[in-house]
Design a protein around this nucleic acid. Structure first.
Lengths: 136, 136
DNA sequence: CTACATGCAAATTTTTTGCATTACA
DNA sequence: TGTAATGCAAAAAATTTGCATGTAG
């Protein structure tokens, strides 16, 4: 995960704050903004929450980061590396990544595309869990 | 769609405000809270936004309503009738319902359940569109 | 009647903005 | 050096809360 290259490729300045945000997200812990802010502060105590908001915004716009919107909980954030399924715990809202057989969804997407008139961009699958090891 | 029965079944008082919210949601227009509030106000000009918030909260807790959390946009709400896929336009955030072949997802859920240790509650599929008739 | 729901206003929380300053390229 | 990013503080937006009053069951 070369954060510097990622930013360069999108013509975004590689400020230490941005690097730190990307580094934190690359752990795939799916922090919400407050958790992310706290984590960055450990390295850059002076960073402002506004900077985190602004950077998430621009990096989402550039496709480097994805926002995981969840019912009844603040959005969580993830660095974008490749498509994957998210497992979301209904009890504690923890999120886990899951690699999967893309063929299955690709297949479904094709089937679906034949039945609707608008162009499908992508399909997102979210698996909700009754509980998980974090909340049990 | 008998809103009265729905509320009764959950031991919630069938106030006109609640009935009106459910009636509005049963149109499946997926309003966000502001759109919903405006709609209810046409019938009950005195209703307060706080009441709408409170009622959505309790009705979600009781499973009558679902919150559709979306990246970069306020949550939208839908009455819960049966599982279905949501089509979400990437450009204008419009949401459409789509009935589908449940067998496909049930099948996938079973496959997946064999590979993870936590109990799956349900799987949600969201199809993102590049654009739609509403924004074109 | 009584417990729960409502409406209002205020409080809180979350997110955005403007701007002077800093620092990447 | 110029442009874009930062931090701060203030503003705006979104959501929740407390409480007096109203009303469904």
């Amino acid at each position: 995960m070369n954060c510097l290259e990622l930013l360069k490729a999108k013509n975004l300045k590689a400020t230490p704050q941005r690097m730190s945000i990307l580094k934190a997200l690359s752990k795939h812990e799916h922090p919400n903004i407050d958790e992310l802010y706290e984590q960055i502060k450990e390295e850059y105590p002076a960073i402002s929450l506004a900077t985190v908001y602004k950077n998430l915004g621009t990096m989402i716009d550039e496709g480097l980061v994805i926002e995981l919107a969840l019912p009844n909980s603040k959005s969580k954030y993830d660095i974008y590396e490749y498509e994957h399924i998210h497992l979301v715990c209904n009890k504690c809202n923890s999120v886990y990544d899951l690699d999967y057989d893309k063929a299955y969804i690709n297949d479904y997407q094709k089937k679906l595309q034949n039945n609707i008139s608008f162009k499908i961009s992508n399909i997102k699958m979210t698996v909700f869990l009754e509980e998980c090891s974090n909340c049990k």
